[in-house]
């Protein structure tokens, strides 16, 4: 059976790469509900990654829209050699990288870099909303999360992309290498440097609350 003949019901039963293939095939056939499902499946991941990389909620939202528009236009080029998720990671990181370059060009006369917007009016929402937390714990965790985000934004973009994909998105070094188009060894070395830089910047935070 060719890809184009996969029944629609199969998309609901398939998992992993097979699900990607079915979903992409349905999108290529022009089914709006298939693309809606694709966006719904990945929008949280795309927004979270963009917000962590850019440190700005509005920018992240705008980038996320562009990511899915790009996905829609380039679906014909998706060959299924990597997972759909990895492919979307790659597009998201590239879009964030482009946005940062564009932003720097537009605001190069300002002293405030994009990274510092993590504490500005468009800062991403970092609050801990776990219902069982006391207000004191929520405030403390929020402040700690803000410190970690600031430390993340002080890394170079390349190091930040690797550490966010590994530590927050839970991707393997091989998948990150695939998403970023770099060697696995480069991913490992960037990860090690990023961790070391964060260790120095967060030395006073590590160890709080029984952190090892």
């Amino acid at each position: 059976m060719s890809v184009g003949e996969i029944p629609l019901e199969a998309a609901g039963r398939a998992t992993g790469r097979a699900a990607d293939v079915v979903l992409v095939a349905r999108c290529r056939r022009g089914e709006p509900e298939a693309f809606s499902r694709l966006v719904a499946l990945h929008e949280g991941m795309v927004f979270n990654l963009a917000a962590r990389l850019l440190g700005d909620g509005e920018e992240a939202r705008d980038v996320a829209q562009n990511v899915f528009l790009h996905v829609y236009r380039k679906l014909g080029q998706f060959e299924g050699r990597s997972t759909l998720r990895t492919w979307i990671y790659r597009i998201t990181v590239n879009q964030c990288h482009n946005r940062r370059r564009w932003w720097k060009r537009r605001h190069k006369d300002k002293e405030e870099p994009l990274d510092d917007l993590a504490t500005g009016p468009n800062a991403v929402f970092l609050a801990d909303r776990r219902p069982e937390s006391s207000p004191y714990d929520q405030t403390r965790r929020s402040e700690r999360a803000r410190r970690v985000q600031r430390a993340l934004l002080q890394l170079s973009f390349d190091h930040r992309a690797v550490v966010v994909l590994f530590e927050i998105e839970g991707q393997s070094c091989a998948a990150i290498a695939d998403a970023l188009g770099i060697a696995t060894g480069t991913v490992k070395s960037r990860l090690a440097r990023a961790r070391e830089a964060l260790r120095k910047r967060l030395s006073d935070v590590v160890g709080e609350d029984g952190q090892s």
């Binding site: 829209q65 829609y72 929402f125 961790r195 260790r199």
Partner: peptide, 28 residues
């Protein structure tokens, strides 16, 4: 300390867009 950094990163809350992105994308 390195493990502590990893734990801090892993504890970061997932950030969510205030509104669904899907509707805006489909409209565009």
């Amino acid at each position: 300390e390195l493990r502590g950094v990893s734990e801090l990163l892993g504890e970061l809350p997932r950030l969510e867009a205030p509104e669904s992105i899907a509707q805006d994308v489909l409209t565009r």
